[in-house]
């Protein structure tokens, strides 16, 4: 089973490298965000896989917290780019 876990971990690493490449290459800032978002969700999966690979069950809490932080980070960065201000009031209208 360890070999399968290791293969999956390596595949996730490959995906993370591709996502990071897209984040660096751009061209627009939104491509960077897509890359970082994929990178973040893959990190969650990676930590979950490492939990099983290493047998240390406490690591799963790190994955849980990371899943929450990653989402908040993406939304916060989007708001920062769009309004140049994290404390701006919500926009009117429906979007």
């Amino acid at each position: 089973m360890g070999a399968v876990l290791l293969a999956t971990i390596l595949a996730i690493f490959t995906t993370m490298i591709l996502a990071l490449w897209r984040a660096i290459a751009g061209p627009s800032v939104y491509d960077t965000i897509v890359g970082v978002n994929v990178f973040g969700t893959k990190t969650v999966l990676l930590i979950a896989l490492i939990t099983y690979f290493s047998g240390n069950d406490d690591l799963i809490d790190v994955a849980l917290v990371y899943a929450l932080i990653n989402f908040l980070a993406v939304i916060a960065v989007l708001k920062l780019i769009r309004q140049r201000d994290l404390a701006a009031a919500p926009e009117g209208g429906d979007d």
């Binding site: 939104y30 965000i33 978002n37 979950a48 989402f71 993406v74 989007l78 780019i81 769009r82 979007d95």
Partner: peptide
């Protein structure tokens, strides 16, 4: 805990995708 992680991921990724697409459209891409 694993199922909880899956639930969080499946609930948050549509919101993140939608926010990214919306922001890119509003920015004029």
């Amino acid at each position: 805990k694993l199922l909880l992680i899956l639930l969080f991921l499946l609930f948050t990724t549509p919101a993140a995708s939608h926010a990214t697409a919306r922001a890119a459209l509003v920015a004029g891409l």
